[in-house]
Computed example of a mutant assay.
Amino acid sequence: MAGQRPQQEVSAWRPRIPGVVEVFHAHFTEYAYPMHVHEAWTLLIVDDGAVRYDLDRHEHGTPHDTVTLLPPHVPHNGSPATPHGFRKRVVYLDDTRLADDLIGPAVDGPDLRDPVLRRRVAQLHTALTHAGDKLEAESRLTLISDRLTTLLRPHHPRSPRPDPTLARNLRELLDEHITDGLTLDRAAALVHAHPAHLVRAFSTAYGIAPHQYLNSRRVDRARRLLLDGLPATEVATATGFFDQSHLTRHFRKLVGVTPGRYARENVRRLDRPDP
């Protein structure tokens, strides 16, 4: 816009999630990418504005309701398609997450209009911004990879039907690892199942995702420890949360108040004289 300076806001990090090379969030108003390539898959959503780009000599665009998947080693560029630029979130994935035979279909149709996929990618980015939500990020990424494969390879065989026994086995594993946690890949190896099938089996059987189950068990333990008088910092460590802020976020989501307020209300009740 005339009279305003171009904006360039970026943040980038490498989470400890298998298959994730980099997470990149950016807001550009006038910056244009020249032709370039990545050795990783580029999974992109645009939250504001739009991007126009060329891929394999064909012009494409990224309205906010699409998910864009750019394959590795294929040149592309990018520039704002609106006067106020664009705000985007990108996760770069290595070849363990998506097979090489998807490169051709991704070149032919990189922009995917799929509301479920769009929602899952946004949820993945939210999980990736919090260091303690590794199981959630792994679970969401596994389902995203599976859905991308299904969309780009229509004749991809369907996953097996949900298995209640498999779901129960995962629940028992999560119960054994409430404090120390458990990665999705490790759980899948222990129960001899594909990670995506494992997540679906659990969610179908119990109506809750594995990471939600684990966090709710941790919050339950945190409530008991807070009522015992332990400070929130010690409770976070004792219940497997990354830090106090990680505990606070999930505690408030499930209980409706912060751990501090929860503990204070308990103290007030104990201090009241008997009637």
Rank of each mutant, 00 (worst) to 15 (best):
R87I: 10
T96Q: 12
P105F: 04
F86E: 02
I103T: 06
P80W: 01
R87E: 11
D94A: 10
T96S: 11
G85P: 05
L102V: 06
Y92D: 06
G104A: 13
T96F: 09
T82G: 07
D100S: 12
V90T: 15
T82L: 11
L93I: 15
D94Y: 08
P80V: 04
H84V: 13
H84T: 13
S79I: 12
N77Q: 09
P83V: 05
Y92R: 05
N77V: 07
D94P: 03
H76T: 04
L102E: 06
V91C: 07
G104Y: 11
L102S: 09
D100P: 01
A99S: 14
G78F: 03
R89D: 07
T96R: 15
P71G: 10
I103S: 03
D101V: 10
N77Y: 08
H76L: 01
V90P: 01
D100K: 08
H76E: 08
P75E: 01
L98F: 00
R97M: 14
I103L: 10
G78H: 00
D95C: 10
N77E: 08
V74L: 06
P80A: 02
T96P: 00
P105K: 07
P105I: 03
G78V: 07
L98P: 02
G104C: 14
D101Y: 09
T82K: 11
I103C: 03
D101T: 13
T96H: 13
N77I: 09
G78C: 03
H84D: 15
V74C: 08
P71S: 14
P72D: 03
G85V: 00
Y92A: 01
S79V: 15
P105W: 08
I103N: 04
A99Q: 14
L98K: 06
H84C: 08
N77F: 04
H73T: 09
P105R: 07
P72L: 02
L93E: 02
V90E: 06
R87L: 13
S79T: 12
V91A: 00
P72C: 01
R87A: 14
K88V: 09
K88P: 00
T96W: 11
G104K: 11
K88E: 06
K88W: 03
F86H: 04
A81F: 05
A81P: 04
K88I: 15
R97H: 05
A81M: 05
